[in-house]
Each structure stands twice: as structure tokens, then as C-alpha cells.
């Protein structure tokens, strides 16, 4: 499974970005840089990661740093799946 591709698809879908994630790289900043990413959207992304990848995220696993960049979010998912 291409985790980066899946993560970008989820971001694109939840934030209604209409394909803008096609230009996103691992170092693309997210929180504070993508205006659509408000608290409701962060929760939407976490929830969909849980359902699409089939893992459970605990309350203390997520902080602002997880959503800093595409790379940090992909790394988080990789960590959950390993």
C-alpha cells in the first residue's frame, strides 16, 4: 500500500481540495499553511485514517506536530501500521 498516496487522498477528500494535493510533497506544510485544515477537519482526517487503515488512535498520540507537514502525518500512519 502506498501510504503517502492514501494519506493525500484522505486530505484531499476531507478538506474538499479538488485535487490540490497532487502538488503536495513530504515537506509541504499543513497545519497553519492549509487554511481548510481547522479543528473539525483535523478530526475528520484522524477519523478517516482510523477507518481506512483500520487502527485506533489514542488521545495522547496526536499533537500539533503530527499535522505539521505531509511527511509528519505519513510517518505517524507508518508508525501505527508497523
Amino acid at each position: 500500500m502506498d501510504i503517502k498516496k492514501e494519506v493525500l487522498a484522505i486530505l484531499d477528500e476531507v478538506l474538499s481540495l479538488n485535487g490540490r494535493t497532487a502538488d503536495f510533497a513530504l515537506d509541504t506544510p499543513l497545519l497553519g499553511a492549509v487554511p481548510e485544515l481547522d479543528s473539525m477537519a483535523v478530526v475528520g482526517v484522524i477519523n478517516m485514517l482510523e477507518e481506512r487503515f483500520g487502527f485506533v488512535v489514542e488521545d495522547d498520540e496526536i499533537d500539533g506536530a503530527t499535522f505539521a507537514t505531509v511527511g509528519s502525518l505519513v510517518a505517524f500512519v507508518e508508525g501505527k501500521l508497523s
Binding site: 481547522d38 479543528s39 473539525m40 483535523v42 478530526v43 484522524i46 482510523e50 488521545d59 500539533g64
Partner: peptide, 23 residues
Amino acid sequence: RQHLTQFLRLKGVSQMMEESDAK
């Protein structure tokens, strides 16, 4: 239970965005 956890997460994440303690 998981659905409720996901819903309560809204509370924690809005705190996280304000850089206070989500947990």
C-alpha cells in the same frame, strides 16, 4: 464506543489548535 471517541476528539483537537493540552 469508537464513534463517541471520534466525536469527543473534537473537544481535544480544538484545544490542541490553541496549543493547550488536548489530553
